[in-house]
Nucleic acid binder design. Structure first.
Lengths: 238, 238
DNA sequence: ACAAAAGTGTTGTACGTACACCCATGA
DNA sequence: TCATGGGTGTACGTACAACACTTTTGT
């Protein structure tokens, strides 16, 4: 599913009087807010350096190359602009209102999950991480797009195991619960959460424990036989 | 949500070495199979009269005009090719694999529901209705697209009231149950179905009854305060 | 009267929620 | 020993599936 090397040169864009196809991605990850003890959902945005909405923050993206599939374009453009390689990538929606940009642009938007261990230390120039719940005014219709992506994320966390796309290989039940709590924006009962996820068959207990504070917590792994998310007959193709 | 008059002339397409954007629609409706007493899901397909896959059956669609929104393009192209005006229209997915067509085409695909009373008597030339469960080999990747649309329909019928998009204004609970049974492909308990749908708050009982066979059945209407389908922050825009 | 569909009642199981309680560790 | 999070037990309410049963019509 992941990225490949970017092609050396890109095909010239068609004349501006034609519809052009762009690809953008809403990338979600979790960050522990320094002061408090809660996690928050954050997304990386790119400061625009060109004419439409120059200086404003926008979703990472770029033009679709004529020789690459949609998902490949999403992987490539987000890697080029942010240097990131998410663990999960799924198409969100195609946005194509006539007035969403000065020239006619249809944007195929993807959304992605980034594991905590995939976040690089030094950030790329012109990229900044924002609390998804408290965004500034973004370029184009990107506020609307992020809202929709958040809605999809919250929905999907309820009926699939995508939350695992935000965690490293081994984790405690408290880690997993924190992910759910950050996405859903409410506290969950530890006892009930444990039983739910244990009965779902998606977790494999290891014989390792995480120590350091109070009683050690058992570490779990994901059962790779269970799909991360049910995408129906489409197995992740375009 | 519905169609408008088609523009008199369409902008010339960009040169064939650029990516073009097409819009197609999977239109679902129900038909009572003549012999038996069951309903089946049927979709209209158009016979291709041009080069790629000429003679094969394909989804109704056409090129996106540079001056129209995506949903408007879906409404227009399906009206032009089939003469239909569905009661419900929602974006399905953007298909853009490089090899899905001889030239590079990104298809924004919609899916639609047509009420029984919206089906015209005489069918347009080159349009034929097919049982969705028994399709021939279609042009391009359209078999795959229909499979995905069917999956979405079956999913969505479980957590929204879209089934109502397939019925006339007034209907009996048996009518509604038939819709669910046709979509889900299994029989439902009339008693439990009644309670479920009654408690959902989406139905308004009228004081009219349908007579004709056995005990008369009460007619119901939809509560228009309840959305047909939850589309999140997107209220049906593109 | 009888068949058949409309509509009601009852029961059991599964599952989510609330919350009391015990366990194991660091300090 | 105490505070804290890990982990177990239990009781209650809702939702759904199964199915027996009553009601109302056409024939």
């Amino acid at each position: 599913m992941m990225t490949r090397t970017a092609p050396a040169q890109r095909a010239a864009h068609p004349s501006a009087d034609a519809t052009r196809v762009a690809v953008s991605t809403v990338i979600f990850t979790l960050r522990r807010v320094p002061a408090g003890d809660v996690m928050q959902v954050v997304i990386p945005l790119v400061r625009r350096t060109r004419d439409p909405h120059e200086g404003q923050w926008a979703l990472p993206g770029g033009w679709l190359d004529i020789t690459e599939d949609l998902e490949a374009a999403a992987s490539r453009t987000l890697a080029e602009t942010t240097g990131l390689a998410p663990s999960y990538l799924e198409q969100l929606y195609a946005f194509g209102a006539v007035d969403r940009s000065p020239t006619r642009v249809v944007s195929i938007v993807y959304w992605a999950l980034l594991r905590a261990d995939e976040i690089p230390d030094e950030t790329v120039e012109n990229v900044r991480w924002f609390d998804a719940a408290d965004l500034p005014r973004l370029a184009f219709d990107h506020n609307e797009i992020v809202d929709y992506a958040l809605w999809r994320l919250r929905n999907k966390v309820g009926y699939s195991r995508i939350a695992h796309g935000l965690l490293a290989d081994e984790f405690t039940l408290a880690d997993l619960r924190e992910v759910y709590e950050a996405i859903l924006g409410r506290r969950l009962d530890p006892a009930n959460f444990r039983r739910q996820v244990e009965n779902s068959g998606t977790l494999i207990p290891t014989d390792r424990f995480r120590t350091g504070s109070h009683r050690p917590a058992r570490l779990y792994r994901y059962n790779k036989d269970v799909e991360l998310a049910d995408r129906g007959p489409l197995g992740g193709r375009d």
